[in-house]
């Protein structure tokens, strides 16, 4: 699915990623954990194409294509999805309109006509149920006035609508109460298939009780310093990160 090799990236001249390598195959869920400032969010931003970050070295192949060569929107349309740590509020742009345009762009990329209004509404209804999102929210502007939990649910809802091959969820659990966490995790689990993959970036082990990863990686100082099975998360919870970074 995605193969990252020796990735170096910097922001404002400061190197954050210092030779990161990672491979994720279809059907897998990977968790990336690590201390603050390790480069977790940088990785998410670099992969989705945020121009504030500059890749200085390395290669990323997404389904065999050079990901770093693609625009932000084309990466999305190739099947990459970023669930934001801090979803952006966009007053005046309605959720429905936003999703309709995004969905149509994805279809256009694959040479398909947009869905008819009724087909689209049917899809919307189906996916809304999946993440238990309130209809009131989809009638509002994108993320405007949403609570922390609603914003995160909305990220998973968008993910469900766009059906990506690879979803990168950046700190999706932050700011969630236990009910919202259950719903968000439930949504991710329901979307899990043999032909897609998920990278979960998280600080805490808590989310991984709900979404069980196949692999856990520790990111520290811009590199993966340790990889292991799901039990590694428990070990990290217990011992912290110091024993790995010393």
């Amino acid at each position: 699915m995605i193969k990252i090799t020796d990735l170096h990236a910097e922001i404002d001249g400061k190197e954050i990623l210092k030779g990161l390598s990672l491979e994720v195959k279809a059907g897998e869920v990977h968790a990336i954990m690590g201390p603050n400032g390790a480069g977790k969010s940088t990785l998410a931003n670099v992969l989705s194409g945020n121009e504030a970050y500059e890749v200085t070295k390395g290669e990323v192949l997404f389904e065999g294509k050079d990901l770093l060569d693609l625009s932000v929107e084309d990466r999305a349309k190739e099947g990459l999805f970023l669930g934001f740590q801090y979803p952006v509020e966009i007053p005046g742009v309605s959720m429905i309109n936003f999703l309709k345009i995004a969905h149509a762009e994805h279809r256009k990329y694959r040479g398909l006509e947009p869905l008819s209004a009724s087909e689209f509404l049917k899809l919307l209804k189906e996916k809304k149920a999946l993440v238990e999102i309130d209809s009131k929210l989809t009638n509002r502007s994108v993320n405007e006035g949403f609570s922390g939990g609603e914003k995160k649910k909305n990220e998973i809802f968008q993910m469900a609508m766009l059906d990506p091959k690879l979803a990168i969820l950046d700190e999706t659990d932050s700011g969630l109460d236990i009910d919202a966490l259950r719903i968000v995790a439930g949504g991710v689990n329901k979307l899990r298939r043999k032909d897609n993959a998920t990278i979960i970036i998280t600080h805490y082990q808590r989310l991984l009780e709900h979404i069980v990863p196949d692999f856990v990686h520790v990111l520290a100082d811009g590199k993966i310093v340790k990889s292991g099975p799901k039990e590694l998360a428990l070990e990290l919870e217990e011992k912290g990160y110091d024993w790995l970074t010393r």
């Binding site: 625009s71 932000v72 929107e73 979803p87 762009e105 994108v142």
Partner: peptide
């Protein structure tokens, strides 16, 4: 916000 929209596939 523009970046956010782009990550959803909107040019």
């Amino acid at each position: 916000a523009i970046y956010y929209l782009q990550t959803r596939g909107i040019p």
